[in-house]
Write a protein that binds this DNA or RNA. Structure first.
Length: 108
DNA sequence: TTAATGACCTCCG
DNA sequence: TCGGAGGCCATTA
């Protein structure tokens, strides 16, 4: 199987530095698929059993909201992981999201 | 090949 | 300000 959109997503997600977060749309856009923001989330669905582990908890929606937290082993896992990275989560939302935002296109 | 799905994003009321 | 509906596009069955 050739390097599909998935692999691109996985690679970028793995490049997310500790304590940083990004959005699905930003990843999709950096891949040149601006409109396929949903594909990023879809890829994450398969990223569950991949190795090395994909820090999907560092990927949130445009509002910095933990929309996909229910897809983790436990809904609290995502928030806990982010807090463990030094981030602050309130109401399933990342505080200072803009400050901790990591733009893949900026690194690539 | 066709049809259905999805951890999103944006617009309209 | 809040809620609902549509659109994008690749992957899977």
């Amino acid at each position: 199987m050739e390097q599909s959109f998935y692999d691109q997503v996985y690679e970028i997600v793995r490049l997310i530095p500790k304590g940083r977060v990004t959005s699905y749309g930003a990843i999709a856009k950096s891949l040149g698929a601006g409109g396929s923001s949903r594909l990023v989330g879809y890829a994450m669905n398969n990223a569950h059993g991949l190795s090395p582990k994909i820090p999907a908890h560092r990927v949130v929606n445009r509002n910095g909201l933990l929309t996909g937290k229910f897809h983790f082993a436990t809904p609290d896992l995502m928030q806990q992981l982010l807090e463990n990275e030094g981030l602050t989560i309130t109401d399933n939302k990342i505080q200072n999201f803009k400050t901790h935002f990591w733009d893949p296109a900026q690194e690539l």
